[in-house]
Design a protein around this nucleic acid. Sequence first.
DNA 1: ATACTATGTGTATAGACAACACTAAGTAAT
DNA 2: ATTACTTAGTGTTGTCTATACACATAGTAT
Lengths: 229, 229
Amino acid sequence: MNKKEKKPEFEKYEYSSAAVDLVIFSIINGELNVLLTKMKYKPFEGKLALPGGRIRVHESVDECAKREIKEKVGVKDIYIEQLYSFGDVKRDPSVRIISVSYLALVDSIDNIKLETTEKYEKIYWTPINKVSKLAYDHNKILKYALFRLKSKLIYTNIVCNLLPKKFSLSEMQKVHEIILGRKLDKRNFRKKVLTLDLIKEAGREVGVPHRPSKLYSFKTKKLMIIEMF
Amino acid sequence: MNKKEKKPEFEKYEYSSAAVDLVIFSIINGELNVLLTKMKYKPFEGKLALPGGRIRVHESVDECAKREIKEKVGVKDIYIEQLYSFGDVKRDPSVRIISVSYLALVDSIDNIKLETTEKYEKIYWTPINKVSKLAYDHNKILKYALFRLKSKLIYTNIVCNLLPKKFSLSEMQKVHEIILGRKLDKRNFRKKVLTLDLIKEAGREVGVPHRPSKLYSFKTKKLMIIEMF
DNA sequence: ATACTATGTGTATAGACAACACTAAGTAAT
DNA sequence: ATTACTTAGTGTTGTCTATACACATAGTAT
């Protein structure tokens, strides 16, 4: 089965290639953070960018995204979701490359050691509202990722990927407030969350200098479509 | 500025290429139809598939989708929206290629003449529920497109792209019912649509053997996020 | 014992959604 | 002109959901 013979138009034009870019979020010190890299090479030498890399011929797009995450943050089994493909001709000034972007969520940065690679000089967490001009079209990608995260926070249980195994309702509410950027009513929040029947009790907080909160855990971390806030 | 010099990892692996696949819907004779092509070449010779083609190096992904639509149905300025990128390694058995899928909507097939191209033997509209096994992973793509269309029907004004310039509320309701696959209550439908303030009156129907309906048109065809049904 | 701090709880109001059946306005046939 | 036929067009009620809002509780620290 010869390609040229079967699909004669294939050699008429020059075609484009694809890469994956990752928007990895985590809540750190009460702020939403995104993982950024400092680039080593031109045309964006010294600039900040989302981590990413080209899709190899033997791996699926999803596998590529997972491999990149493994390489950068050393963990697997974190939440990951494809966002959108950005394909402007000049988005990378040096080569024609289409970016398939992914959203990933990390619940805690405790077990994570950031790895630089040959391509990147440094890699670090940056609070969302301190992100300035990024390389390529990465501001656009980040903006879209944030939009998606906000949306899904409202109509799914995606927040479970940003919380530790056991958490209080106050913690959960705080994550919502950080991402949505607005205060929520405590009583209404609790009422809603409890009627959704997604979480179960998991003991009590200890050693805090105030009334200890009940702890909860998610019954499942599988993504569910549910009206939230 | 030499690529090899700046991005040394580029030549270590073999990389993948990208194409666009189109899910073009239209309502024909009270049914939702999708545009399918019969393929000329192996490995899917004679099989039905979604129309599509590889992304050229000088065009953006969106431009590629628009070009493909222009080539196949001869119209531009129709609704088009990127869906998802499908990137399994073996989705095309003959080459490694990532598919960026698009949803497109055609309001009327009157001004459309379908064009075959070198790659396709035939191209025709097929009612959604008569679609059987397609080439590649195109059943998956079609299923996702249908899901997206149903979702957006509920929370946006996307239906305006499936209706003629002037339409009655009954016609509009029928389009909703066809796509959602269930009956809607006439009074509730009208109440909701009219309170949304998206449409304006545009005369009356003439020459029908029953009470003529009021006609309406959309104030704007720009996509708006709005709770519908 | 008192101060401090975050937890935890109920009610009332307004708006949205769902269920439901009959009259109105035109054409066609007699 | 009357009648039959066909689709258009119209309101009300009950239920559920979202929102707004304030005070008592259970711990630790002094």
